[in-house]
Design a protein around this nucleic acid. Sequence first.
DNA 1: ATTTCTCGTACTATTTAAAGTTACATGAAA
DNA 2: TTTCATGTAACTTTAAATAGTACGAGAAAT
Lengths: 154, 154
Amino acid sequence: MKRDSRLSGVLHVLLHMAEHGEPTTSEQLAKAMQTHPVVIRRILAGLRDAGFVRSEKGHGGGWTIAKDLADITMRDVYDAIGRPGLMAMGNRTEAPGCLVEQAVNAALDGSFRDAEALLLARFGAVTLATLAADFHERMAARSTSPDKQEHIHG
Amino acid sequence: MKRDSRLSGVLHVLLHMAEHGEPTTSEQLAKAMQTHPVVIRRILAGLRDAGFVRSEKGHGGGWTIAKDLADITMRDVYDAIGRPGLMAMGNRTEAPGCLVEQAVNAALDGSFRDAEALLLARFGAVTLATLAADFHERMAARSTSPDKQEHIHG
DNA sequence: ATTTCTCGTACTATTTAAAGTTACATGAAA
DNA sequence: TTTCATGTAACTTTAAATAGTACGAGAAAT
């Protein structure tokens, strides 16, 4: 099963944007993410509509974070990219006439619903500020072991 | 994101097999599942190797359940089909050099691990006997409201 | 024996979703 | 008015799952 990496991707982009400070262009972000600028614009479109980032055209334009990092949770980001499915498994048929399948679906659905609720609760408990702090800790840890020193993007 | 329906599928097949009693051919199961016999054989291969079902060739051959339904959990079935990924989301890069991505991965991984553990625990608590009982309840419920009466497969 | 039935599995084809790319329009600053 | 940057639609490519084909092997019926 192929896994969707959009959430991981946006979070990564947002943190890079936050580190960078001044407006960051899609091209700069694309380079950091090793992807295409259009992919960045697409991935950030939902965040812009939700008011978490701002984009500006023309000279000196680019993307900036529009809120305090402590006020954006992973859950917010997840919502902003359109709440993609969380579970890799689903039912063979969604509204089956077959009673056997109904019984199977009921058992699976209950488990999946609970797992999703747990996941969303976890997402809601982590802010971008948390992630940024973790990043800075990792930076500090790396600089104290100089043998592992390398550029942020290898 | 496309969702894997193999677990849902095998469970369905197993219950049909259990209801049917005598050896059931891949073709019969395929008809009930509206798919191809080869798909059935493939989906049951792992179950056979794990000893949950038996297959026999030639006249009067087919598939039979090899254990008591109460001794097979959804978790067993999940294991037997090769433990496919449970989460629809993953990390953009698995072992990133980028510290920002490491921080993002760490946060997501923690949440996913917990959600998976919850899911597997739930799977382990449901046996095929549970599902069969649920199916029979649904049968009973349907037969008391005759307006909804239809063949098991519509 | 040989015909028929059934599973086993390697191989190929189809389908589907994500990701990448191109192209061009819009708007802002130099 | 040129250059830089986003906005977005359309198209292409890629990767994974699922479906389907073909043929082999074994077991039972004739």
